[in-house]
Write a protein that binds this DNA or RNA. Structure first.
Lengths: 215, 215
DNA sequence: CTCAAATGAATGATTGTTCATTCATTGAAT
DNA sequence: ATTCAATGAATGAACAATCATTCATTTGAG
């Protein structure tokens, strides 16, 4: 924010702390996507960022903190995205739910590099309290909001499934669709995934989602 | 499994190759669940198996091969399980589908240690061709069978969603439920997960799953 | 000039792998 | 039954490679 990018000529640059940290976090995301978390080293990240070896310890003190900050970055970006989607959507619960769910298949959020980060950390979360905390905290908030919306929609129409089951089912389905988008991009894309998710909405909320379907 | 031999007194044991390999694979599963894949070393596995350092290279040549064999073990165990479930179930497509899906929440398959292995390898799969291949091959077969069953059920009754959408939706939802079972065991258990999965079946196949629901 | 940002060679700790050695088991000879 | 090579499973110290981290030095903006 502070430094203008006015001098493209100079070989060496000094950037603000915030700029460098984001640069390193983005490099970490790329390295995790390219090499996997267990082969992501200080060297692969530094190289990806085209910076020197020592720079990460300078800005993050340790590798562990870099990884935590990377997870935080991705998770918070996600949280900001669905919050904004809620704000800018229509007032009805149906509109809000659709906006919120569509974030999961938005081009800015649902990128394979970032999906790789989600799954990499999920894979390690069982054994790392810090990762689990970061994720669980955000997840709790997300599910609460989703639950509220589903309850509201359920109360408006006729549904054979409980709101909490629908909410959990939706979140779960999206995790699996992300896995397909990550590992089998030839057989799954954003439109398909969105369509499958909407199919589910159409059958659990037949009154509120009448015209969407028929695939 | 381990104490099959007659001499409990002797400190040192010699076991058949197959016994040792399975022992080491099980130790690897525990180590991945306990430490995570990126902290799982030859030392942690050997310690978990209560054997010496060099034993893994003796039986698997390299760490990489041990990990591949571990993934194969879990994935093949899963394949055997759903195949057996298909065989021992009733003849109707509905019965077969339910049997097949219930395997995902069977106590022998759906253990947290093994879920940790699934997610650990999914997290690394983007960057490791071998892992991706092992998983993709089995997944393709699984989805084909599931697709066939869904198509058959669709043709029997009235459904607003395409068979392939239902099949993919089911598989995806189960992945997400596995994640909950792995990371939030206090808020999710096998019965709940099965119930959520059945809710989905009940609404997409209203004719074939009439009485199951109302949660 | 001043000083924070950035470097990259150096360091010690950790890792996967190797291999000479130890030891339990087997089976043939006594 | 007993003995004793032969076999190969298992060990664990040693090795080279790789890793995260440190720090004296250099760079460049104000």
């Amino acid at each position: 924010m502070n430094q203008t990018l006015a001098k493209p000529r100079s070989k060496r640059r000094t950037a603000s702390k915030e700029q460098r940290q984001v640069q390193l976090i983005k490099a970490t995301i790329r390295s995790i996507a390219k090499n996997g978390l267990s082969v992501t080293t200080m060297a692969t990240v530094a190289k990806e960022a085209q910076l020197s070896q020592g720079i990460i310890n300078l800005h993050f003190q340790s590798k562990e903190r870099l990884l935590e900050e990377t997870l935080l970055y991705v998770v918070d970006e996600y949280r900001c995205a669905w919050r904004k989607a809620l704000e800018s959507s229509g007032d009805s619960a149906v509109e809000k739910l659709v906006s919120m769910l569509n974030v999961d298949f938005d081009k800015r959020i649902c990128q394979r590099n970032k999906l790789a980060v989600w799954f990499a950390f999920w894979g390690e979360s069982r054994s790392r309290l810090t990762y689990r905390k970061i994720y669980a905290e955000r997840e709790k908030e997300y599910k609460q909001v989703l639950n509220g919306l589903c309850r509201e929609i359920c109360s408006q129409g006729q549904s054979d499934v409980s709101a909490s089951h629908i909410a959990t089912g939706l979140v779960s389905m999206h995790v699996g669709l992300w896995l397909d988008l990550l590992l089998a991009p030839a057989e799954m894309n954003l439109e398909q995934a969105r369509s499958i998710s909407h199919s589910y909405l159409a059958v659990v909320f037949p009154d509120q989602f009448p015209g969407i379907l028929r695939v």
